[in-house]
């Protein structure tokens, strides 16, 4: 097999894996938009906050440590214990559920019935607040996240492809793990929405929240539930991205990677987020591989948006989005 073809296959596989990571971020946006019509600008910061909280709990850090020391003149440096990863993840989920409840109680319930742009603006404020809160609670230093996920080249694939083609493919173990986790996550989300009472209520609100209210479904409960699930998805995304780069404040910028995925896959479809992520991942990586060297490289950021725009021209609602038909 020609070298260029082998390289292209390797790039495609890595593109698919990168796409899964983009899709993980996009999923959080989709969940909230589907249930409440809110484009949650804070989704990237939620991933950051969840990851910061997870590391803080694992390392036994005292929340607001710097603030407490500055105000009371104390010299607190952590609880002096370490929390196992699984327990820390559960505790972080409790924090994210509390956060979802607070967002609903303090912000969203006052904005029911407002224009989508108002709700969007509220999430912008929320994003900046959450970033500041994360900074005050856990500090701005870069934190190493180790929840035991494997990283580095998968030697089995490397050796197998080397024996077959004389060139070993690089596939990152972390990407393989992310793919498995994303698949499980989507399966659980689909099962939840299809087979549980709360899931069906969530779908009812997504379809028509006025009708849902009329049959006794609590909008407050559904919104808290949705934001909690989005918080869980944000935690998963935060773990995956944080394992690559350490947990730091630029983690909130991963939201930028989700936007073309949403444009392409549609804002209301979970499968759309996954398929959109895969298309964007493969598309940008292949474009960089084939065309990047001719135009000086660094094409991935803008090409992802070009690709999404091309799809939008033909399907304005996105690949899996709901078609909007307004009859006069």
């Amino acid at each position: 097999m020609p070298d260029q073809l082998l390289f292209a296959i390797e790039v495609t596989l890595n593109g698919l894996m990168a796409g899964v990571l983009y899709a993980l971020v996009a999923l959080g946006f989709v969940l909230i938009f589907k249930a409440s019509g809110i484009f949650n600008y804070a989704q990237g910061v939620m991933a950051l906050f969840a990851a910061l909280t997870l590391v803080g709990i694992m390392d036994g850090q005292v929340p607001f440590e710097h603030l407490i020391n500055a105000v009371f003149g104390t010299d607190i440096h952590g609880f002096g214990w370490e929390v196992p990863a699984l327990l820390a993840i559960l505790l972080t989920m409790v924090v994210m559920i509390a956060f979802a409840w607070a967002v609903n109680w303090i912000v969203l319930r006052h904005l029911v019935g407002q224009e989508p742009i108002i709700l969007f603006m509220a999430t912008i404020g929320l994003a900046y607040f959450l970033e500041g809160l994360g900074d005050m609670m856990w500090g701005a230093d870069i934190k190493t996240l180790d929840v035991g996920l494997p990283q580095g080249i998968n030697t089995t694939i490397d050796e197998a492809t080397f024996n077959m083609f004389g060139y070993g493919f690089f596939i990152d173990n972390l990407d393989i793990t992310a793919t498995i986790i994303a698949a499980v996550l989507v399966a659980v989300l689909v099962a939840f929405s299809q087979y549980t009472k709360q899931g069906r209520a969530l779908r009812a609100v997504a379809d028509d929240h006025q009708a849902a209210l009329s049959v006794g479904i609590s909008l407050n409960f559904i919104w808290v539930l949705t934001w909690s699930i989005a918080g869980f998805v944000a935690l998963v995304a935060g773990i995956m991205w944080g394992a690559k780069s350490g947990v730091q404040f630029s983690l909130s910028l991963i939201a930028l990677k989700a936007l073309p995925v949403l444009m392409l896959g549609g804002f209301t479809s979970i499968p759309g987020a996954i398929v959109g992520g895969l298309i964007i991942g493969v598309g940008e990586k292949l474009f960089e591989f084939l065309v990047g060297p001719l135009v000086g490289g660094a094409t991935e950021n803008w090409f992802a948006y070009v690709l999404a725009l091309i799809f939008l021209v033909f399907r304005p609602q996105g690949l899996f989005g709901e078609r909007i038909i307004e009859r006069v």
């Binding site: 890595n14 990168a18 690089f170 630029s250 910028l253 990677k257 591989f289 950021n301």
Partner: peptide, 17 residues
């Protein structure tokens, strides 16, 4: 060999491949 990385640089798979 020049390999640019777009801001902020969270995704560099292409460059390292």
């Amino acid at each position: 060999l020049e390999l640019p990385v777009d801001h902020p640089g969270q995704e560099q798979k292409s460059q390292w491949l």
